[in-house]
């Protein structure tokens, strides 16, 4: 069963990379430490279910508005980007997280929901890779690799990466700071919606599950600086593997332990790097 577990771990790890990128875009790109990340993400599956079950939309049509649900928060976050800095954004989004939680409880109740994927999955040399995890892996990897290529190959991508490294310099070179911030804000919000929807494929969710997403995203986002996306991809996969394999070898309680250790390790590593620089 090691093969099956590794596939689950790899899928989860790739998903964590996506979470890390989404959080990082908003954090370093737009300057918002978004503690309401998880709650914003969870709005996407709720919108999807609403359109699917109440609205009678076909699943593929309901996906679009759900993916784009992150745009709901654009006006709010834009005001924040313009008026708040650093710790103030963290406090503001912490309050926002509580408001969103209550809002979702009122609208959707605290009942757990799951998006069922009927597809059984694929078999690789006798090893089953379940449908939800194949989707999780495929979509996450496509998005992260796409962004990685974009940031390395295209002029626009290079400019955005440069923005994350030295804002003064890119301003002198003629890159619009407002445009760059808008890019990261909107990009981060779309990725937040995608993350929420993917999370609901393999994890039962209710309005209080957002914190899990935020902590995982924050843990991975700590691993990089200066627009480098590779550490996010690698870090996410390592976290996914560590968490799942701890559960497989040592039991579920160690799965939680691995998650906590990863967060502590990431904070320590980031502090050490900051001191060096």
């Amino acid at each position: 069963m090691l093969g099956e577990t590794l596939l689950v771990a790899l899928s989860l790890g790739t998903f964590y990379s996506l979470l890390g990128v989404a959080f990082y875009f908003s954090w370093e790109g737009a300057g918002v430490v978004n503690i309401a990340f998880g709650e914003m993400g969870l709005v996407a599956p709720y919108i999807y279910l609403l359109l699917l079950r109440k609205g009678g939309w076909p699943w593929y049509a309901a996906m679009g508005p759900a993916f784009l649900s992150g745009f709901l928060w654009v006006p709010l976050l834009w005001v924040m980007v313009k008026r708040l800095r650093g710790l103030a954004t963290l406090i503001f989004t912490l309050g926002l997280a509580f408001v969103l939680q209550r809002f979702m409880v009122v609208l959707f109740t605290v009942d757990y929901r799951v998006l069922e994927v009927k597809w059984n999955g694929v078999k690789l040399g006798g090893i089953l890779w379940p449908g939800p995890f194949v989707v999780l892996f495929g979509v996450s990897l496509m998005v992260v690799l796409g962004l990685l290529l974009f940031s390395r190959v295209t002029m626009k991508g290079l400019a955005m990466r440069a923005f994350l490294q030295d804002r003064t310099l890119v301003a002198i070179l003629g890159v619009s700071l407002v445009e760059a911030k808008t890019f990261f804000l909107l990009g981060g919000l779309v990725l937040t919606g995608v993350s929420g929807l993917l999370f609901s494929l393999f994890h039962p969710f209710n309005p209080f599950e957002g914190l899990k997403l935020t902590i995982s995203a924050f843990t991975v986002a700590l691993l990089t600086r200066g627009g480098r996306l590779t550490p996010l991809l690698v870090g996410g996969v390592i976290l996914g593997i560590a968490e799942t394999m701890a559960g497989f070898w040592a039991g579920y309680q160690w799965q939680e332990g691995a998650r906590a250790l990863a967060l502590l390790g990431a904070v320590a590593w980031r502090s050490w790097r900051d001191v060096l620089e």
Binding site: V8, F202, T244, F248, G251, Y252
Partner: peptide, 18 residues
């Protein structure tokens, strides 16, 4: 095996593999 798990957890399969 005497294993604790979180109710409504997303990852029960590794527990069963054990």
């Amino acid at each position: 095996a005497l294993e604790r798990f979180e109710p409504s957890s997303g990852l029960l399969a590794p527990l069963l593999f054990r």
